[in-house]
Design a binder for these strands. Structure first.
Lengths: 309, 309
DNA sequence: CGGGGGCGATAGGAATAGCCAATCGCGTCC
DNA sequence: GGACGCGATTGGCTATTCCTATCGCCCCCG
C-alpha cells in the first residue's frame, strides 16, 4: 500500500471517473486503474463499483475512502509543515472569503498582502460560509474570512474587525434625508434580502427581529449577490442593510443610492479569520490576520487585538 | 514520499534508535537510514538530530513526526477497516485491562471470548488507566476495560457492570465478625491503599472522604498490586477496600482474610469498555462488550444495557 | 441493426525506487 | 588504545510503478 494509491482512491471517489481522476493525479489511466485494482486485491475489498457508465463507491468502500482521505490529508499537512518550518511565510495561501466581504475587502487586502507576505500569493475563493467551512476542514483552504460566530470543533479563529450595517435606500425614500436611523424605523415589508445561505441575510433578519419575515413582495426578491441587491434598492424596490465597506463604492457612484448610518452599537457584524486548528502554517495565517487588520479601511474598527475560541 | 517512509520516521521517533527502529520495521538498518535521509532531503528539513550516541527529534521535526503519525494511523485504520468490512469479528483484538480488574475478569473472559469471537484472539495488556488511554488514542489498543468515568473527547464507552467494594480484613479484626459494615466504621488511619495511579486507590480515598489521607503507617504502605495489598491485610497491617470480584479468590483461600460487604449503593464502581470513536472495528468491540457482560460472574451486576457518552 | 465513441481493463517493456549485505567513519567506553 | 556500538555509504539486485498501445464492453445514434 502506498500513499499514491490512496491519493488515487480519493481522486476516483471525488470525481467518480477513472479517466478524470488519472488526469488529476498526473498519471495515465491504465496506471491508475492498475493501482486501484491492486489495492482492492490487497485489501480484499471492492472499493468501487464500475458498471460501464458510472463509478460509485461501494458501501464497504466508503469507510476505506474516508480513511484514505485522512491519510492523504495528513501527508499533505506533513509537506506543508515541512515547508512552513523552512519559512512559514513561503508558499501560496488559499483564502476563502464570503461574498459580502470579498468584493470590498480584496482591493485593500491584495496590495497589503503583496507587501507583508511577498512569498505567499493569495489564492482567493469567494463563496458562502457554509461552503467555505467544509473546504477548511478538508484542508482545501488554508483560512477563510467569515462574519458569523466562530465555529468551535476543529476550527479556530482570529477576530479581524467590526463592521457596522448601514441602511441603504433609494434617493427618494423618506428615510434617506435622515442623518441616522434606527432599526425600528425600517418597514419590514419593505426590506430586501439576499438569497438563502448568505449570513448577511440572516443577520438582517435577526436585527429586524423577524426570523420568519418572508411576506410581501420582498419574499420574491432574494438577490443572489449584494451588488444585485443594491441595484434593486437603487431601482426603488425597497431598502436593505449593507455592510459599511459596501457603502463607499455605492454612495459615491452617481448618487443613485443613499446610505444612512444606524444607531445602536449592536448593529454590526464581527468579521473573523478562521482556520483549521492543526493547520501547519499557523504563522502565515497569523501574519495574514495582522495584514488584514492593518489593511482594512478606517470605516471599520479593528476588533480587540486577540480573540480566539 | 511513501507511507513506509513515514512509518520509519514514526518508528525512529518512538524508539530513538535507528537500529531498533529498523528491526521494528523489518528492514535493514541501511535501508531505514537511507529512506529517512532521502525524506529529510525531499522535505528540506532535518527531522532527527544524530550526535553519535543518541537520536532526538529536532524542534522543527516534531510537527513532521506528528503528521507522519496521523498518516500512519490512518493507513492502519484503513487496513483494519478493510478487514473489518470482510468480517468485523476476524482478527486479533488488542485489549487493555486495568490491573485491579484484569486478574479476576480474565479467567471468565477468555473462554467466553474464545466461544463468541473465535476468530478474534484477545491480546491482553494490563496497565494503569493513565497508560491505557493514550495507547487507545494512538491506535495501539482496540479497546480497554477501565473503572473510572468515561473520558469524553475522542473516546467512547460501553457500560459493562457495577462492582461493589467489600471491606477486607484480617481474621482477627473486630469488624470481621460483622455481617456487613458501613464506610464510617472504617478507621482511616488503618486503611491500606494501592500505589499512586491506580483508580482503586482514588476511589477508596474518595469513598472514605479523605482526599489527603496520607497519615500514619499506611502512608508508607502503597502496594504496587492488589495482590500485594491483600497479602498485607492478611498479615495484619490494616484493612482495605477490594472490588467484589477479587473477594472470591481470597475468601476461599485458606481463610487468611475476611470479606465484609459494605452498606450503601454508592459503594461500587462502574466498569466500562472504552474505545476510540473512529475505530474501524466497532462491531467487534460491541460484540466484545456483550461477551464481557455475559461472562462476568453473578457477583457483579450488569449495568443498564446500553450507555455511551 | 451496425458503426462510433467513451470507459475501464489488459499486455509488455522501460525506468525507477526500495532493499540487502558488506563496509566505512566516528564517537565512546573499558 | 583497541573493541564496540551506531549511523552513513556503496554496489548490485529485485520488485514496483509507469508508460504506450490495445482490447472488450456498453451505450448511443443513425
Amino acid at each position: 500500500m502506498n500513499l499514491r494509491d490512496l491519493q488515487y482512491v480519493v481522486s476516483v471517489a471525488d470525481l467518480g471517473h477513472f479517466g478524470r481522476a488519472s488526469a488529476a493525479c498526473n498519471v495515465s489511466q491504465p496506471t491508475l486503474s492498475g493501482q486501484i485494482l491492486k489495492l482492492e486485491n490487497e485489501l480484499g475489498v471492492q472499493v468501487f463499483e464500475r458498471d460501464g457508465r458510472t463509478v460509485r463507491v461501494t458501501e464497504r468502500g466508503a469507510a476505506i475512502v474516508a480513511h484514505a482521505r485522512r491519510a492523504v490529508n495528513a501527508a499533505a499537512d506533513l509537506i506543508a509543515a515541512a515547508r512552513a518550518s523552512r519559512d512559514p511565510l513561503d508558499g501560496p495561501i488559499r483564502l476563502g472569503v464570503i461574498a459580502t466581504v470579498g468584493p470590498y475587502l480584496t482591493p485593500y487586502l491584495l496590495p497589503a498582502a503583496a507587501r507583508d507576505l511577498p512569498k505567499a500569493p493569495l489564492l482567493l475563493v469567494e463563496d458562502l460560509t457554509s461552503h467555505l467551512l467544509p473546504l477548511l476542514s478538508e484542508g482545501k483552504l488554508d483560512a477563510a474570512v467569515i462574519a458569523t460566530d466562530p465555529p468551535s470543533d476543529r476550527l479556530e479563529s482570529i477576530d479581524l474587525y467590526d463592521e457596522a450595517f448601514w441602511l441603504m435606500t433609494a434617493p427618494d425614500d423618506p428615510l434617506s434625508r435622515r442623518k441616522s436611523a434606527r432599526i425600528a424605523d425600517i418597514d419590514p415589508t419593505n426590506l430586501l434580502l439576499l438569497a438563502d445561505g448568505h449570513c448577511l441575510r440572516d443577520q438582517a433578519l435577526d436585527l429586524c427581529g423577524q426570523p420568519n419575515l418572508g411576506g410581501g413582495a420582498s419574499a420574491d426578491m432574494r438577490a443572489a449577490s449584494l451588488e444585485t441587491l443594491l441595484h434593486l434598492v437603487a431601482a426603488g424596490f425597497g431598502v436593505t442593510l449593507a455592510p459599511r465597506m459596501a457603502v463607499d463604492t455605492w454612495d459615491v457612484n452617481g448618487g443613485r443610492l443613499r446610505a444612512v448610518p444606524l444607531e445602536g452599537k449592536d448593529v454590526t457584524r464581527r468579521v473573523r479569520l478562521v482556520f483549521r486548528r492543526d493547520m501547519p502554517r499557523r504563522a502565515a495565517v497569523e501574519e495574514l490576520a495582522r495584514t488584514i487588520r492593518g489593511a482594512a479601511p478606517p470605516c471599520v474598527s479593528a476588533s480587540p487585538p486577540q480573540a480566539t475560541p
